[in-house]
Design a protein around this nucleic acid. Structure first.
Length: 140
DNA sequence: GCCAACGTTGGC
DNA sequence: GCCAACGTTGGC
């Protein structure tokens, strides 16, 4: 299983919006960046991901599961763009802020820190378990 | 609200 | 195919 991170502006699509979709999940449409799209094409059903609030919130707030592999993005007719579907799994009891990530040496190489503009990105297994613990989850 | 970083576009 | 101009993202 692989691990990922999905970024969203809460004013656009928030964790609450994602939670409201429940087990059915929701298409992660609207991504118009090749790197991000390529990562989504690599995702498999059952992979896990973090849900990150950008802009004012700047924190990892929950975990999600990939519930549909990459398929054409329904928000456009342009066939260059694919996306996956994700569903909310757990809310982090304690959100892990960008500040906290930056202050943790083991997380200094995270794409979140290194390439802050990439909206869909891979997370290593070590990063995953550490952030889960920091957020108050036993495990992913 | 500003601005740096980065990705994309389009002229040559 | 290069690169300048432009637009967008996201941290501060």
């Amino acid at each position: 299983m692989r691990y990922w991170l999905f970024k969203s502006e809460p004013s656009d699509w928030s964790w609450d919006d994602q939670l409201a979709k429940g087990a059915a999940g929701e298409e992660w449409g609207g991504v118009r960046n090749y790197q991000a799209r390529n990562f989504m094409r690599e995702m498999a059903v059952g992979d896990r991901g973090f849900f990150y609030h950008s802009q004012k919130a700047r924190a990892i707030v929950g975990t999600v599961e990939i519930c549909a592999a990459a398929h054409p993005d329904s928000t456009t007719d342009d066939d260059r763009w694919d996306c996956v579907d994700i569903r909310a799994l757990e809310t982090l009891p304690e959100p892990v802020t960008l500040d906290a990530v930056k202050q943790t040496p083991e997380l200094a190489d995270m794409v979140l820190v290194k390439n802050s503009r990439l909206s869909v990105q891979p997370v290593t297994a070590d990063e995953w378990s550490l952030i889960c613990r920091m957020g108050g989850l036993q495990d992913g």
